[in-house]
């Protein structure tokens, strides 16, 4: 693998059952491409959390993953309500999820912190009423 490979997924916002499907597929692709378990784990966690966030808060969105030997870039984009206070949203334990969502085991306020913890860089562009774009990069040690 010398060139960047791109994967595109539509994340269905209506379907909690299939939430995580894109992450599971990416994990399989990365395994086939021979990435180490640590890299695969980090990408899986970050992408899963992002995917779940789009389902919970934004009615779905799109995920694009760019894979090359040096790094894996994940771009998640939605047209949801946006994040009003990003620094608050980044705090562990802070969540705006509904009780229904919490009863499913989500909404612990760990999503964004996990995404930051398991990636080498994370940028959040969010505009109220327009949507959110999150760009995460996991560097691959050579």
């Amino acid at each position: 693998m010398s060139e960047t490979i791109q994967f595109h997924y539509d994340v269905d916002g209506e379907n909690f059952t299939s939430a995580g499907e894109a992450s599971v597929q990416i994990k399989q692709k990365l395994r086939q491409l021979g990435f180490t378990p640590d890299i695969i784990r980090r990408v899986s966690i970050a992408m899963y959390e992002g995917e779940i966030n789009m389902v919970i808060h934004a009615g779905g969105g799109v995920a694009d993953v760019f894979v090359d030997p040096e790094s894996i870039k994940i771009i998640l984009e939605d047209h949801g309500p946006g994040i009003s206070d990003i620094s608050l949203a980044m705090q562990e334990g802070f969540s705006t999820a509904t009780d229904t969502v919490r009863s499913l085991g989500f909404g612990a306020g760990m999503g964004l912190p996990n995404m930051k913890r398991y990636t080498d860089s994370m940028e959040i562009d969010s505009e109220l009423g327009k949507g959110t774009k999150i760009t995460m990069v996991v560097n691959v040690p050579i």
Partner: peptide, 15 residues
């Protein structure tokens, strides 16, 4: 004790 379908994705992602 969580038995909704999302546990399968978690188990799958974490092997």
């Amino acid at each position: 004790i969580m038995s909704n379908v999302n546990i399968i994705a978690v188990a799958s992602l974490l092997d």
